[in-house]
Computed example of a mutant assay.
Amino acid sequence: MPTLYEWLGGAPALEKLFTRFYEKVPDDPLLAPVFAHMDPGHAQHVAAWVGEVFGGPKTYSTTRGGHTHMISRHLGRGITEEQRRRWVTLLQDTADEVGLPSDPEFRASFVGYLEWGSRLAVIFSAPGMENPAPEDMPTWDWAKPPWQG
């Protein structure tokens, strides 16, 4: 069984996805304020993060500091639920645009991760939230329909 990373096309597909996605963000009235001071390498960093979470190389952990670093990038940002939803929707639209696999099994796994991860980003971005103790990188695998439990 291929990993989600392999199924979606690896680093080239993720870099294409996030490059295109973050090209759209400055023109989005809900998301532009969140990413107003975005690092020029942001798309590549997020591609490495998602790649590692989906079973690819441990690039984000070895070059960016892993889960603890990712959490630190969200602290104090005050991301709203409306911004979170827009991020998820725009990313799904961009996945369609760049040709990520559209089979239901992959999309269930992909969207499941986007929902889970973006909800954590909202929690960690709340005022007064502090960086928690270091944790391992999350990993995400294929979603299973309830009847396959």
Rank of each mutant, 00 (worst) to 15 (best):
G51S: 05
F18K: 03
V46N: 05
R119H: 14
P29G: 07
F106R: 12
D28L: 05
R20S: 07
D93M: 09
R20H: 15
P29A: 07
F54P: 03
W147L: 06
T80A: 12
M70C: 05
F124L: 04
P104Q: 12
M137L: 12
V53E: 00
F110Y: 12
P12R: 06
R64T: 01
S125W: 01
P26A: 05
H42L: 08
E105R: 15
H69R: 13
R86W: 07
G76W: 03
V34K: 00
L120Q: 14
A43L: 06
D39L: 10
T62S: 15
A36V: 11
T59Q: 10
G128P: 02
E105A: 15
P29K: 10
H45E: 09
R84I: 08
G76M: 01
P127L: 02
D39C: 08
W140Q: 11
D27G: 12
E130H: 08
D103H: 11
E105Q: 15
R20M: 04
T89K: 15
V88N: 03
R107P: 01
I71N: 02
E130D: 04
G99M: 01
A32W: 04
H42S: 08
L100S: 03
E23S: 11
G9Q: 01
A47C: 07
D141E: 15
R107E: 01
G99N: 06
T19C: 00
E135N: 05
G56L: 11
E115T: 13
W140C: 11
W49M: 13
R85Y: 07
E15K: 14
R85Q: 15
A133W: 00
H74R: 03
Q44P: 00
L30H: 01
L90Q: 09
D136C: 05
S61G: 12
W87P: 02
V122E: 08
F106S: 07
H37V: 11
P132S: 06
M137N: 02
W142I: 13
T80M: 07
F110Q: 01
R107M: 05
H69E: 14
P40V: 10
M129K: 12
D96F: 01
P145F: 07
D103A: 04
P145M: 12
T139P: 01
T62M: 14
A126V: 02
G41R: 14
L8V: 12
V53H: 02
Y113L: 11
T19K: 13
M70H: 11
V98N: 09
A11M: 10
P40W: 07
H74S: 06
R86D: 07
M38D: 01
R84S: 11
G10L: 10
E82T: 14
A11G: 02
M38K: 13
G78S: 10
W49R: 09
F110V: 00
S118V: 04
G112T: 11
G55Q: 12
L14H: 02
I123R: 14
G65W: 06
P26K: 11
E81A: 14
P134Q: 03
L120V: 03
G9A: 09
L120P: 00
G78T: 04
W140S: 11
E81V: 15
R77T: 00
W116D: 12
A13S: 10
L14Y: 04
M137P: 05
P101A: 06
K58T: 10
G65Y: 05
